[in-house]
Nucleic acid binder design. Structure first.
Lengths: 221, 221
DNA sequence: TTTGTTTCCATTTCATGCAATCTTAGCACG
DNA sequence: CGTGCTAAGATTGCATGAAATGGAAACAAA
């Protein structure tokens, strides 16, 4: 039962599995997440479930009210826009730094990511696509040489990618122009041009944010 | 025994107390933090201690190795610089946004913070000073209107303030020019001038980062 | 000495029971 | 019809024992 991913502890397993369920829309925004419930479903005790929930809370994906419990986040449109504003700034900062110090090895890693993205694209594998997309952006953040910045980028990526799942029921992998945009970004990085890379990244992020809209059947809107 | 601050749960109490111990140098960078140890000292069981440690880990203040345990972070000089770079960008972004939408009420709150800072200054109360200083910066971040940005600023503030404690044994509250700088920032905000406010904030942060140096007696350096 | 192996101990990780707390439903009252 | 109260049920918070893990010490072999 515990196959999909690697994990070192039960808490980590629960964490990854919950994230998987969020990405695959098995869990809905605002839904309550009682500990026992999840524990029974995953065949573990409440303790690692608690830990996983709190970790998700620290990433902003669930909100926990003391003595009341956890529920999946149900971000407002404004919150999502705020998250994207922040993501844009963080990623643009990261890519400026990355453009000046990225190595050949790191560039190849980016190219591999794009190839994997194409594969996910042809297979119409939304989950894989999101994961590989995340890898691409994370790799750039790591190439910035600022590990703390990379952590923050990873965090905001996790949020926005979940928001994409929440907020864009029409998200269509077929019309997504990310792949050529990613290629252009790699080009700018290999030219070691911070300005160009940043401009392309900004355009890329604005583009992917643009067609997000509030979910249809969420009573809170 | 559980007086110093408000808390809703034991885990929260342990979290706050650990933070207090870090700020007051009762705990040293790199020090191991065994659960039982802390639990006994604080008169609670291991469970809430685990929770507090993991929360501190998510803020980058302690590092946890699975099956091995937690230890207090021992940031390198580079890590500290990286944190400050990030802090500068986040806070500058926040203050630009804040300058355009800050209310009278929020401005008064900032002025109150500075008054409290002066009080801590005269009392040479380092802990209170750090706390009030944090309040000032947090208040600006909240005035940005971007709640997620404010969360991130709060996080990086927590880090850098701990780094200050770790890294600057000479940190001298008497020669710290923060108070007039804070006043100048409030001035720019009340003028609703994003450019001026940002410039002052940047200068302020660079100034306070400048005289940080690696601790003397840390074997890892 | 160095390297490898085994045992033991410290510590984390997890499961579980119980107490504390919140939520909800039902009912009385204005 | 709405508001406030009460009791039952659901859920979290915490403590604690047991299992799993990792690392250090002790020892043996090269």
């Amino acid at each position: 039962m515990r196959e999909p991913r690697f994990y070192t502890t039960s808490a980590d397993y629960v964490y990854q599995d919950l994230r998987h369920r969020i990405i695959t829309k098995q869990l809905k925004p605002g839904q309550r997440l009682p500990e026992v419930n999840i524990a029974v479903q995953m065949g573990v005790s409440r303790t690692p479930v608690r830990e996983a929930l709190r970790r998700l809370a620290s990433e902003g994906l669930v909100s926990i009210i003391p003595n009341s419990g956890a529920r999946l986040a149900s971000p407002t449109q404004k919150e999502m826009e705020n998250a994207y504003v922040l993501r844009e700034h963080l990623e643009c900062l990261a890519i400026r730094l990355a453009a000046e110090r990225i190595t050949e090895r790191q560039l190849r890693r980016l190219e591999d990511s794009v190839l994997e993205e194409e594969r996910a694209f042809y297979e119409k594998n939304m989950e894989l696509y999101l994961e590989v997309n995340e890898n691409f952006h994370r790799a750039i953040a790591e190439a910035s040489g600022n590990r703390i910045l990379a952590e923050y980028v990873e965090n905001i990526l996790a949020r926005t990618n979940v928001y994409i799942v929440f907020y864009d029921p029409f998200y269509n992998i077929e019309t997504n122009p990310s792949i050529p945009q990613h290629r252009a970004i790699i080009g700018a990085l290999s030219e070691k041009s911070p300005e160009k890379a940043e401009a392309l990244m900004r355009e890329h992020l604005r583009f992917s944010m643009e067609d997000l809209q509030a979910p249809k059947d969420n009573p809170e809107f």
